[in-house]
Amino acid sequence: MKIHITTFRVRNLMLIAAGALLLNGCASLGVKPWQRDVLAREDMQLNAEPLTHAINDHMYFSKEASSGGRGFAGGGCGCN
């Protein structure tokens, strides 16, 4: 039991440390506000094509065992 608790704590500490490192890394990335010209382009938006995504999600949801990732994996369709 102790081993399990220790393993659990070590795993949590590693996750917290990884998260802290990730956030610290994020702080050194990015751009200044006046450097967002390319990021402001329509084709750089993560949801630039909501209809294409919706149509694709519906097609793949009805033909494959996986769905979601970009958004929720819910059904909303009786096809699978």
């Binding site: 994020c26 990335l29 450097q35 993560l46």
Partner: peptide
């Protein structure tokens, strides 16, 4: 019925690169 949750991290990497990571969990 189903319940789902999603954690997301979006990061501007540089002037030309944007990245996003999503962790999803759902149960039906």
């Amino acid at each position: 019925d189903g319940v789902g949750m999603m954690f997301g991290l979006t990061q501007v990497m540089n002037r030309r690169w944007l990245t996003e990571v999503n962790f999803s969990l759902d149960r039906f």
